[in-house]
Structure formats: C-alpha cells, structure tokens
Amino acid sequence: MKFTIKEQRKLTSTVYFMRLEGDTTGISKTGQFVQIQLPGFYLRRPISINDWTCGENGTLDLIYKVVGHGTEAMKLLPDGTELDLLIGLGNGYNIDGDEKKPLLIGGGVGVPPLYALCKALIAQGKQPSVVLGFNTASEVFWKDEFEALGVPVTVTTADGTMGVKGFVTSAMDGDFDYVYTCGPEPMFKAVYKVLDEKGISGQFSFEERMACGFGVCMGCSCKTKYGNKRICKDGPVLVKEEIIW
C-alpha cells in the first residue's frame, strides 16, 4: 500500500511524529501497527499506529523513536516521499469489555497507540484516565494532546523533573476497573504486579523483533498460557490472564 509523507516533526530529541496520507481502510482497531519499507533497508520497520482517519485518502499518524540506522534514515525523509506500508497488522486492543473507568498506562515510546485507543473509549461513553511515564521532563511528549481530549492525565518521571516522581505504578492509586498498557517489559511487570494485588485485569501490548509482521516467519513467537502466539499476528496485545513472565 502506497502512502505519502505529509509532515514530519520532532517531539523530543529522539522521538518524531510522522503524518502520512493513503488508503487507511485496512486499519480496523486501535493498537494495530504498520510495517514500513524504507529505501535501502531489507526488513520493514514495525511502528504502532498513533491515530488515523479512515478513508481511501485517509491520514495515518505515527510516532517513533530513533533507535537505529532505519529510524535514523526515516527521520530525514522529506515531505512528499512515497513509502510502501503494510497496514492494519496485529490484533489491536479489544474494547468490547464492560469496564467503565479504564486506566491507560504508557511508558516512553509505548505512549503513542494509547491516543487512538483513548479516543475510541471516550466515543464508547467510557471514562478513561491516562498515566504517561518517562525518564525525565525533556522526554515527555503527547501530554497536551491527551489533555485536549478532556481526560485526567498524570505524568510520571523517574527523576521527578515533571509530574509525579517515580514510575507509572506511583500513579496507579486512582479509581479504575481495567488497564490498557503499552511500554517496556520492566514497566509491564510492575503494572502486572499492581493489577494482581488489586484483582484487576488488563491488556498489554508487546514489542518484539520481527521480520514479516503478518504471521508467517515465526520470528516473534512467545509462549502464553493459551498456547504459543505470534506477537505480530495473534498480538501485539495479550490479555493479563494469558501472560507468562
């Protein structure tokens, strides 16, 4: 699927926002991801979907962190560049549950997919609140955008330079009945432990090195209580009950 870069903008020293235009009708759920073919690189780059408007000339918003040669090259691509994408990959978040006050917990570059999710939950009449965890104030992004949705937003920073000092678990004392989360594995384990103590369930969106992104290479397999799963196809979202640490 061909997409055109409409805009790229720097959010922090290592995190970039990219808006693309193209046929987004293949995206069905929040929490799905895309695979981007970058000129000069063999494997595609899997990037979570921050937000999109559905249509043959839809917009697709991605937020990515520069972590290696691929994303280093990606940030330099000028507006108007045409890119080949596989879209609508992965199972995405399941928002058909009967929770009323979900808590959305994002850690670092795990924050982006929670934005479209938050909008979808609001549209359902649910009352989400958001916790965004970062290492330090200069790494914080997308706080204003979440606040513009009119939901309670708590920022935590490990060094206390913004918001609550500590990790996301420092901000998990509010009133919530379900959790949607995306972020690094150490954060997941801490969140999982708190949920265990409170007897609350949730969905965790995982990350793994992958090749194809559509379920054939078995590069990103993991074991779950419900059997072997492919993070790219059967995930990236796993429910708390099936996760094996």
């Binding site: 690189f41 063999y42 494997l43 691929g70 793994e208 090195r209 992958m210 090749a211 290479c217 078995m218 590069g219 990103c220 397999s221 993991c222």
Partner: peptide, 16 residues
C-alpha cells in the same frame, strides 16, 4: 528464544 531475527545489508538472519 527471541530475538530470532536480525537485519543485514540486502538480507536477514533468522534463528527460529
């Protein structure tokens, strides 16, 4: 165990 995939110039490594 994962990671099972690594990228290379014009190719890839798998250890599925």
């Amino acid at each position: 165990p994962t990671p099972r995939i690594a990228e290379c110039t014009a190719g890839m490594i798998n250890a599925v």
